[in-house]
Design a protein around this nucleic acid. Structure first.
Length: 434
RNA sequence: GCCCGGGUGGUGUAGUGGCCCAUCAUACAACCCUGUCACGGUUGUGACGCGGGUUCAAAUCCCGCCUCGGGCGCCA
């Protein structure tokens, strides 16, 4: 739109055209105010009934809330106006009227529940605090990319339509691929490993992953954004160094570049980037600390996986991001390498936020025979994964990597109650549209 | 997959057998009001998820269905 001025840029003395949505109309009788909202904020438009053209006043006051309008007029300094300036219009046009009956209230006077908000995401995202979440999400992704690039990683994009599942375990969405059975990929795991063995060596991918699990919780999605890393000649401790850098960079970028958004979310005072070095608890230390709290009905013993409750208890105990390392091999996937001097202990690790798991990773099994053996022990047919395993015959370096849940990162960073708030159009057990 | 708990005007709610042709807020409509900033005031509009059952009487109790949220498992 030519000659459009953002409301935030309207200076006293200017003659401007502002365009946006009708936020509210307050009619006081002889004088009325229309509050116009755009991406940058709000501005007050003044209608003085005795002193202005009747048609202009009528057009302005007849506009329904959330209609898109453009207003041309003079900007004046006005201490009584909410932003200190107001526009006296000489032109007013309704560009796109809004039905007076709105499915939710973008002015935020009346709350709407999450399903209502998600059904009407466009209107929901007219609320500044909702916008702030997605501005921050964008900044997180930008900072993560920059940090990876600074570390010499190459961004890759791998197929989301695949012939076979990644590593077994989670359920996959089946699709028909020209009549052939195919699946939506649950993880870029196998492909990024193949690239770690290529000349690219250090790669990352930010992309969707699909999981057909019928869970129904505030921290699961069936389509999520995974931030993945894989590095050749990395061991698991070096991979943990990388994830520390990534998570810290994301927090620092938000602290530095998103003050306005943090204020909208009432987080400006408390928001703090982590130190950059997360405690690395061994699995056994984690068990001891959980058991020491006495909060669990039953003491955990070696070999137990950590239940949701155990994770919560440990999170409260540690109070910051932390790693759990040195898991028993039996409860970590076969493609994660065991220690060379201790076949019972895995190099797998998890990065935890006090509220939930954020990352899982480890050093990969790069030895061809061990890998094929692992497939067989899992009851998987190595032939189906031949496209993958065969590359381990042609010089596959030791490598390590991890996957970080993008929405979980944003959710825990901002203290969101529900992961769906961190996605524009979430896909969950109940929701396939919009 | 197993287990809980919900669905009342457009939105968010009150109401757990008769006091309910259903409360309040917001919205919408009309009128009054020249400095609002969640403007205020008066009047009005608008709802018990669907189907069946129990009862003299059902928003309220029972059954089925639809639908939503949550807990666990599992995971990012």
């Amino acid at each position: 739109m030519e000659n459009r001025t953002y409301t935030a840029d309207a200076e006293p003395g200017d003659h401007v055209t502002v365009a946006g949505w009708v936020h509210e109309i307050r009619d006081l009788g002889g004088i009325a105010f229309l509050i116009l909202r755009d991406k940058t904020g709000k501005i007050q438009i003044k209608f003085e009934k005795d002193e202005m053209d009747d048609d202009l006043v009528e057009a302005g006051l007849d506009a329904s809330r959330e209609s898109v309008v453009s207003v041309t007029g003079t900007v004046d300094e006005e201490p009584r106006a909410p932003t200190g300036v107001e526009v006296t219009p000489d032109g007013f046009e309704v560009i796109a009227p809004a039905d007076p009956e709105l499915p939710l209230d973008p002015s935020g006077k009346v709350d709407a529940e999450l399903p209502t908000r998600l059904d009407n995401r466009t209107l929901d995202l007219r609320k500044p605090d909702v916008q702030a979440v997605f501005e921050i999400r964008a900044e997180v992704l930008r900072a993560v990319r920059e940090q990876f690039r600074d570390e010499g990683c190459t961004e890759i994009n791998t197929p989301k339509i695949v012939a076979t599942g990644t590593e077994g375990g989670t359920e996959l969405f089946p699709i028909s691929y020209f009549g052939e059975e195919a699946f939506m990929n649950q993880s870029p795991q196998l492909f990024k490993q193949l690239m770690a063995g290529s000349g690219l060596e250090k790669v990352f991918e930010i992309g969707p992953i699909f999981r057909a699990e019928e869970h129904n919780t505030p921290r699961h999605l069936n389509e999520a954004t995974s931030i993945d890393f894989e590095g050749a000649f990395h061991d698991h401790t070096e991979a943990m160094d990388v994830v520390e850098g990534i998570v810290t960079a994301a927090y620092e970028a938000v602290a530095e570049n998103c003050q306005e958004e943090l204020e909208l979310l009432d987080l400006a005072d408390e928001f703090e980037a982590p130190s950059g070095e997360f405690p690395r608890l061994t699995y056994e230390e984690a068990l001891d600390r959980i058991n020491a709290t006495g909060e669990l009905d039953e003491m955990l013993v070696y070999g137990d996986d950590l239940s949701t409750e155990a994770e919560r208890v440990l999170g409260e105990e540690v109070g910051e991001h932390y790693f759990i390392v040195d898991w028993p091999s039996e409860i970590k996937p076969f493609y994660i390498k065991d220690y060379d001097d201790d076949a019972e202990t895995s190099t797998g690790f998890d990065l935890m936020h006090p509220r939930m798991e954020l990352v899982s990773g480890g050093q990969r099994e790069h030895r061809y025979e061990h890998l094929v053996e692992g497939f067989e022990q899992q009851g998987l047919d190595p032939d189906e994964f031949e496209y993958y395993t065969k590359m381990f015959k042609y010089g596959m370096p030791p490598h390590a990597g991890w996957g970080l849940g993008g929405e979980r990162l944003v959710m825990t960073m901002l203290g969101l109650d529900n992961i769906r708030e961190a996605v524009l159009f979430p896909r969950d057990r109940q929701r396939l549209s919009p």
